[in-house]
């Protein structure tokens, strides 16, 4: 063994002696190669249990038994037992952005009032988009309830999830507030409780559920929940109820039926016959919200009359010591 003379040069060169005859060194040194490899091996073994750690924690009763958060209610079924697939159709021909009412968009207002949504959040936001030939259209935009939701994919803790009914919900009792879902959403439909949101007293009485997100919790993400609890009870979502023109249809893809409160339509027929489209369809997110192109012509709006009313929310004055933030 000429190791000792080589040692003086560079530590790396030592490995070249690997094919030398077995080392006779058994001088009881406390840090030989064998011992080092053993420590290294044990060290890497310590990393192996990492993937099963969550299961172990759950079994030990330190975490909830089920990895899925509570959905609020059991899924609604059709008469023949299929799970309902909630959908929304927004008929832009009937949407004038509530310019004729002289008030903020009624869908947005109804949603905010119904959910006690913190002030700067507009879960259903009415955008004024430009038309190809000039002029504008109003586009009420709720959460698109994607079937391939980018937000659900990136959530580190499974706080946002797809339900069997095809909606995307957020469990604000699990959310850690990392906001990667907000970066991932291509529709800008997620909102953060930046501070202690002003909460009207009656909101504090509600039992929290991911399906209505009342009361708002500081440091968590919120968004349109598609009101599946209301649909199961036989009512339309707040936005559909609020719309004075009946532009918002809500229904079930499985039974192929939707309504705006007055008219009843067959979803497939209604979509196909009216050239329905989905927002940013090319992204492959497969939204559950469909649009029928238009600019309010059915309710007498001229596409070349722009502008939208200022927004002021109904319950603000009731929330005591309300302090809020700008969008």
């Amino acid at each position: 063994m000429d190791d000792d003379t080589v040692m003086g040069a560079a530590p790396g060169q030592d490995r070249e002696c690997a094919d030398a005859p077995p080392r006779p060194v058994m001088d009881g040194s406390r840090f030989d190669r064998r011992r080092f490899l053993r420590v290294l091996g044990l060290g890497s073994l310590a990393v192996v249990p990492l993937p099963v750690l969550p299961q172990l924690l759950r079994q030990a009763g330190l975490a909830e038994a089920r990895p899925e958060p509570p959905h609020g209610g059991d899924a609604a079924h059709t008469r023949d037992g299929r799970i309902r697939q909630w959908t929304m159709i927004i008929d832009l021909r009937s949407c004038d952005g509530c310019q004729s009412t002289g008030k903020p968009p009624r869908c947005t207002a109804a949603c905010i009032e119904g959910h006690f949504a913190p002030e700067p959040m507009e879960w259903v936001e009415v955008y004024e988009g430009e038309l190809p030939g000039g002029g504008t259209q109003f586009v009420p935009t709720p959460c698109q309830q994607c079937e391939n939701p980018p937000c659900v994919n990136v959530c580190p803790v499974g706080a946002t999830f797809s339900t069997p009914e095809g909606t995307v919900l957020i469990d604000q009792e699990r959310c850690i507030g990392c906001r990667i879902c907000m970066a991932a959403c291509p529709y800008d439909r997620r909102f953060f409780n930046w501070g202690n949101a002003p909460i009207p007293p009656e909101a504090l009485l509600a039992d929290y559920s991911a399906e209505h997100q009342i009361p708002a919790k500081k440091g968590t993400v919120m968004k349109c929940d598609f009101c599946p609890d209301m649909a199961r009870a036989g009512t339309l979502p707040y936005c559909a109820q609020g719309c004075p023109n009946g532009a918002i249809y809500y229904g079930d893809l499985e039974e192929d039926i939707a309504t705006n409160g007055t008219a009843l339509v067959s979803v497939s027929r209604f979509l196909s016959e009216n050239d329905a489209y989905r927002l940013k369809d090319d992204l492959g997110t497969k939204p559950r919200v469909f649009y029928i192109p238009g600019h309010g012509e059915a309710v007498g709006r001229d596409a070349f009359t722009p502008d939208r009313q200022p927004t002021e929310w109904p319950w603000m004055e009731r929330a005591e010591g309300a302090a809020t933030w700008k969008r």
Binding site: L53, N153, V154, V157, G177, C178, I180, N193, G219
Partner: peptide
């Protein structure tokens, strides 16, 4: 940067392998 640093342990308890954060 977390909105809920008090829930940091959720990353271990509920961690999902699909998430870039994990």
């Amino acid at each position: 940067d977390l909105g809920r640093p008090d829930r940091l342990l959720n990353v271990v308890i509920y961690g999902r392998w699909q998430s870039p954060i994990i």
